[in-house]
Amino acid sequence: MSCPRPRVLLIEDEKQIRRFVRIAVEEEGCQVSEAETMAQGLVEAGLGKPDLLIVDLGLPDGNGIDLIRDVRGWSDVPILILSARAQENDKIDALDAGADDYLTKPFSVGELRARVRALLRRRARSGDAATPIIEFGRVSVDLSRRLVARAGVAVHLTPLEYRLLASLLAHPGKVMTQRTLLREIWGPSYVESSHYLRVYVGHLRQKLEDDPTQPQHFLTETGVGYRFQP
């Protein structure tokens, strides 16, 4: 089976960071092109049809968030953000604008490779027909029959719990912002009532995780949202 090498576009103004990111991503078998500015990045993204975008949020000629919005206008290519800022708001804005995941600087090469791998795998899988049965840990979810079982025992979920589960399962590995989840499941008037989301994620963990206090699948991205890790 000969797959074409995935193309990764790296938009980052700092030369030394580009250097090691390139080395790490090439190690994942990807072909890397680089851009230093937002303008250049947009041109490259349009011409090169990359399979993954790695974007630094603080670009010299503009905000990375604007670039994400622009790209999302015509493409659903996975986008990984590199953020040096401690403020959660930037990450949330970037994720809401359509980014898939983020890494906070400084990050290790190991973390970077894991994220790149996950995003590319999801990209590849999204082409397949969606499988009706999803399995993670000891849990299996039959989406066509709305059945959830843990270690072979049926688990009863309330309608809202099921919808939350389905939303999270639909985007494995992707960071879902609180806002997005609240709007999707409770509706637009609940986007500020984050405690609903937290309580229901707590319910899912109670029912599906082995140790609800130290979850392995329904992960908290503190201050940002949640991520489902298969």
Binding site: E14, Q16, I23, F107, S108, L112
Partner: peptide, 24 residues
């Protein structure tokens, strides 16, 4: 603070990443 944070973290990121990339 956020400029300082950016300016301090950028070289640190490069340092961490470049040290890691020696393994590759």
């Amino acid at each position: 603070l956020s400029a300082l944070s950016h300016d301090l973290r950028t070289p640190l990121t490069a340092l961490v990443g470049l040290a890691d990339s020696l393994f590759l």
